[in-house]
Design a protein around this nucleic acid. Structure first.
Lengths: 232, 232
DNA sequence: CGATAACTTGACACAGCTCAACCTGGGTGG
DNA sequence: CCACCCAGGTTGAGCTGTGTCAAGTTATCG
């Protein structure tokens, strides 16, 4: 395998306080791996044997019910750690993770976790901050699911997606990984039919523009207007 | 203030590895405080200046929307830490916490957090485990809100409440803090009317028995039957 | 013994689900 | 390279679970 370049890590929060030698050390312990769109990185409840750093692409954490329904918990953008079960005292992964688009990730054996936490300054702090962020996102999901209507939830979700992973394009902002109506409905607790109807209606009004597996938001402010009461 | 007894702490997971002297040390730094039913311990977004240990009673973490709607995130049973914003890198509390019933808690200034984590063996590990548990509960909430019907969510919630804080009583298990229809609806993302109708129907069938602010489950197995598909 | 918070129940409306039938673009294999 | 296949998408029709509105009853507390 080609030697990994140090510039991959030194800008990322969990490693930003480290010197070249330490970064080198960490990279030499890492394995890099590519995942195709839709590929599963690991399954919920599986023994957590590795922790990952997402170098490129977007990854999706989801739960699959006994009925086979998919519930998407959150999306992880490039640059963040995931699969960090140890950070909250679990020995198994709390969710299934799959690649939303083609993905490049680094991973380390989980046995190294304790030494990363103790040896590398700032690593622990940053990972706990990440945990805090995810917790916050989940709380937002719960509140939204509890009090908002489907239309408002889908509007909010689209706004969040273009905010987190939006790419500027002619005429608007595009979600920069392939996303189906089904995916959106898994994120909002509704059906692909309802999402399809909403997107059709919004397209007629010029708010969004969508092709197969792609959504562009043209008028984010009008989505905001549909997204319901401002969060507290 | 009366000196606190060491037996308060030495059975609780975050402190179970400590010796008498350390426990004494910790207790001498603590302040004990009583909260009446319904009293607010702290508010969401408030500067996190203290962390708490719940000695007796049950506490509820909730979010209040701009519309004034209450969404209950989780219940914390006696013996657990709460308000541990620092454990996930936040400087403000992530939710509002109020006493579900009369509550006794200890608290410490948040400035002591770093020294608790470094100085006391097992404390860090246990708090991260707590964070992991809460994360798990929140995931369950999200999945339930996404795929289950109201009746199933209420059934699941009741089962969870009697499991976590149930007290055995003649003829069934009672939720051992005062709980209104409104409270239950805040936990399940529905209205007090629907909860009332469900409880009435269940009472007619002999599954539950409820007075004002009190619910007893007589036939948990029948609730389980109503609670929808088994979690994955 | 009011007053008020908690609870109940009916009537009705409608958001969003289900069922069904049908398009369509793009990838692939012959 | 083109025809076919099918995942992904659309749209209609109808139904129903739950919310909303409304009106009332019953515990509990000061």
């Amino acid at each position: 395998m080609a030697k990994l370049d140090e510039s991959l890590l030194n800008r990322l929060p969990p490693f930003s306080l480290l010197d070249r030698k330490q970064i080198r050390e960490i990279l030499d312990l890492a394995t890099s791996q590519r995942f195709a769109e839709g590929a599963t990185v690991y399954h919920e409840e599986e023994e957590a044997t590795r922790f990952y750093l997402l170098l490129d692409g977007t990854v999706r954490a989801l739960h699959i019910t006994s009925e086979g329904e998919h519930v998407t918990a959150l999306h992880v953008p490039a640059g963040q750690l995931f699969g960090i079960a140890r950070a909250f005292g679990r020995s198994t992964y709390p969710a299934t993770v799959e690649a939303a688009a083609e993905v490049i990730a680094l991973w380390w054996p989980m046995d190294l976790w304790p030494q990363f936490v103790t040896r590398y300054e700032g690593f622990a702090t940053e990972t706990y901050r990440t945990v805090g962020q995810r917790l916050g996102e989940m709380q937002t999901r719960i509140v939204e699911l509890s009090v908002l209507h489907v239309e408002q939830r889908v509007a909010n979700t689209l706004l969040r997606l273009i905010d987190q992973t939006g790419r500027q394009a002619e005429g608007g902002t595009v979600i920069d990984f392939p996303i189906t109506r089904q995916d959106l409905s898994d994120m909002t607790g509704t059906t692909l039919h309802t999402v399809s109807r909403l997107l059709s209606a919004w397209e007629r009004q010029g708010i969004v523009e969508s092709r197969r597996k792609q959504i562009m938001v043209r008028q984010p402010n009008r989505l905001t207007a549909l997204s319901g009461p401002r969060p507290a």
